[in-house]
Design a protein around this nucleic acid. Sequence first.
DNA 1: AACCGGGTCCGCCAAT
DNA 2: TAATTGGCGGACCCGG
Length: 345
Amino acid sequence: VLVLIAMAEPSPARLASTSGGNDDYGLISAMHRVAVLALEPVEAFDLATPVQVLSPDRPGDDARYKVTVCGCRRGPVKTTHGYAVHATAGLGALRSADTVIIPGFDVGSRPVEAAALRAVRAAHRRGARIASICTGAFALAETGLLDGRSAATHWAYVEEFSRSFPRVEVSPDVLWVDHGDVLTSAGVAAGIDLSLHMVRIDHGAAVANAKARRMVVAPLRDGGQAQFIEAPAGSDPPTGDLAATRAWALEHLHQPIAIAQLAAHAGWSERSLLRRFRSETGTTPLRWLLVQRVRRAQDLLETSDLPIEVVATRCGFGSAPALRRHFERVVHTTPTAYRRTFRGK
DNA sequence: AACCGGGTCCGCCAAT
DNA sequence: TAATTGGCGGACCCGG
């Protein structure tokens, strides 16, 4: 059960199992094969995103994934902007993939070729992890793999999506949704977040953060955040901006932080702080704080041998049980198991 | 595991 | 009138 939506509770889903013989993180012993399936006409940005995130920074760097761009057949694939990209493989690439990613495409060109849907279903049945970016969710939904589950797609397509797939519950206000075996993400740039999330699941927070830094993007946008931030575009002075307050909180994570303190820092009443916090981040201060603390704990667990008790204190948890509880909720495993898996990688 | 004291969060409403 | 703010009550959640 693995759904990262700030507000919703997890829905039934089977746990991640990527390729055979993995532990519950979907780690792979051999090279993890990723097939990015370009449906015509493909949204080129969505296509490039996972390739960029999952490929080595420079040729020659140690690769963690073997990424293949494939189409319904080998050869040129039209993009939504007219130019073509070259698929180096056809649907056969899905047969050996550990992860299949479906980027956005022009949904007006549906229905998706039946052979592609069959190949995706077969890959899933084999145990491959299936992910979609943006309108790629339309193709994923057509396979039936999203039935009865929550999913994300581009906010502008939410209505059309729920009309077309009434059995799928669209979450309009999240960046991505992770069911372990099936993942969906919101529009365009959220594909970056989803890809980084997969790196984090597969290789730990440190690797994902390094990649994010390298790409010069925000490393810690969680799935449960608002897709778009309400910005008073126009003349009004940017009166409310909690970025500074959140930054302040991050610097003081190790100590207790009450709403009253945040409100004081921001110069608002508690009630208004709550409202603004939600509109900016899509969640509440406490929930946000707890996730940040867990993230810090992940980092400490990966990079130090400090006892759990000490890790807990340094992250602002009052006790080890408190850390354990929230760690479990966010990462879906225990601190010790997490450290065993990722320490030294 | 159940419990409790205090903090958090949100609907509602009045004030601005 | 429309929009924003802040106070309050109470359900809910968190830490111990």
